[in-house]
Amino acid sequence: MDVGAKFLGTRWAARAPIALFKAHLGFLFAGRMLLLLHRGRNSGAERSVVLEAVDREDPDKVLIASGFGTTSQWYQNLKAEPSCRVSIGFRNRVPATAELLDTSASSSLLARYAADHPRLWKHLSRSITTLTGDSDEKLDIPIVRLHLERRPD
């Protein structure tokens, strides 16, 4: 099995960075990773997941991708309730609103990501296809734009 897929498929490894974010050490990821705090659509309980920031359109707009598609729990939760909180860099638990992008916008942004980070995309796409069983041609990775509350000037 692909090493990246094995890592992504291991719950403890995927959740390990959460402790760093909760200790306000998210800046160690240099803005490449973020902690997303969202509400469970059925339980209403706060849930957390660490995700890669695919792009930062500006300091208050962050793009994230759902590598496991629209069935990811965090994606489904944001679809039901777009209000969330985000920790990224030196910013902690910032109120945010999620905007689920359509297929066309997601594909365009993903193509740009692949062009900007070809080596990383090669490994990441291989890991995703290994875990999902999809082929490269069938990869449907939705993108979410997080609108963070602006910092006071």
Rank of each mutant, 00 (worst) to 15 (best):
residue 2 D to A: 09
residue 2 D to F: 02
residue 2 D to N: 13
residue 3 V to W: 09
residue 3 V to Q: 09
residue 9 G to D: 03
residue 9 G to P: 11
residue 9 G to C: 05
residue 10 T to D: 14
residue 11 R to D: 11
residue 12 W to E: 02
residue 12 W to K: 06
residue 13 A to Q: 15
residue 13 A to I: 15
residue 14 A to Q: 06
residue 14 A to T: 06
residue 15 R to K: 14
residue 16 A to H: 08
residue 16 A to N: 08
residue 18 I to Y: 09
residue 19 A to F: 06
residue 19 A to G: 02
residue 19 A to W: 10
residue 20 L to E: 00
residue 21 F to S: 07
residue 23 A to E: 02
residue 24 H to Y: 10
residue 25 L to Y: 01
residue 25 L to W: 01
residue 26 G to I: 10
residue 28 L to Q: 02
residue 30 A to R: 15
residue 30 A to C: 03
residue 31 G to L: 00
residue 31 G to C: 01
residue 32 R to W: 10
residue 32 R to Q: 09
residue 32 R to C: 04
residue 33 M to P: 05
residue 34 L to D: 07
residue 35 L to S: 12
residue 35 L to T: 12
residue 35 L to C: 13
residue 36 L to Y: 01
residue 38 H to I: 04
residue 38 H to V: 07
residue 38 H to L: 05
residue 39 R to C: 03
residue 39 R to A: 11
residue 40 G to D: 05
residue 40 G to S: 13
residue 40 G to Q: 09
residue 41 R to M: 12
residue 43 S to I: 12
residue 44 G to S: 11
residue 45 A to S: 05
residue 48 S to K: 13
residue 48 S to D: 07
residue 49 V to Q: 13
residue 52 E to M: 10
residue 52 E to F: 13
residue 53 A to P: 11
residue 53 A to N: 07
residue 54 V to F: 01
residue 54 V to I: 13
residue 55 D to W: 00
residue 56 R to A: 15
residue 56 R to S: 14
residue 59 P to M: 10
residue 59 P to A: 12
residue 60 D to K: 04
residue 61 K to R: 08
residue 63 L to V: 12
residue 63 L to F: 04
residue 64 I to Q: 07
residue 64 I to Y: 00
residue 65 A to C: 04
residue 66 S to Y: 11
residue 69 G to F: 05
residue 70 T to I: 04
residue 70 T to P: 04
residue 70 T to E: 15
residue 72 S to H: 00
residue 72 S to E: 15
residue 74 W to F: 08
residue 76 Q to L: 15
residue 78 L to H: 00
residue 78 L to P: 05
residue 79 K to F: 08
residue 79 K to Q: 14
residue 80 A to D: 08
residue 80 A to T: 12
residue 82 P to G: 15
residue 83 S to L: 09
residue 85 R to H: 07
residue 85 R to M: 10
residue 86 V to E: 08
residue 89 G to K: 12
residue 91 R to D: 14
residue 92 N to M: 10
residue 92 N to G: 09
residue 92 N to W: 05
residue 95 P to I: 11
residue 95 P to S: 01
residue 95 P to L: 00
residue 96 A to H: 02
residue 97 T to N: 04
residue 97 T to H: 12
residue 100 L to K: 08
residue 100 L to S: 13
residue 103 T to D: 05
residue 103 T to F: 12
residue 106 S to Y: 06
residue 109 L to W: 03
residue 110 L to D: 10
residue 113 Y to Q: 01
residue 114 A to H: 15
residue 115 A to L: 07
residue 117 H to F: 14
residue 117 H to M: 11
residue 118 P to S: 02
residue 119 R to V: 06
residue 122 K to Q: 14
residue 123 H to I: 07
residue 123 H to V: 08
residue 125 S to R: 14
residue 125 S to N: 02
residue 126 R to I: 01
residue 126 R to H: 11
residue 128 I to A: 01
residue 128 I to R: 03
residue 131 L to F: 14
residue 131 L to N: 10
residue 133 G to E: 12
residue 134 D to F: 07
residue 135 S to R: 09
residue 136 D to R: 11
residue 137 E to C: 02
residue 137 E to I: 01
residue 137 E to A: 15
residue 138 K to W: 01
residue 140 D to V: 12
residue 141 I to G: 00
residue 142 P to H: 07
residue 142 P to K: 04
residue 142 P to E: 13
residue 142 P to D: 09
residue 143 I to S: 14
residue 143 I to Y: 05
residue 144 V to T: 12
residue 146 L to Y: 02
residue 148 L to G: 13
residue 149 E to A: 15
residue 150 R to H: 09
residue 151 R to F: 02
residue 151 R to H: 11
residue 152 P to A: 14
residue 153 D to H: 13
residue 153 D to M: 08
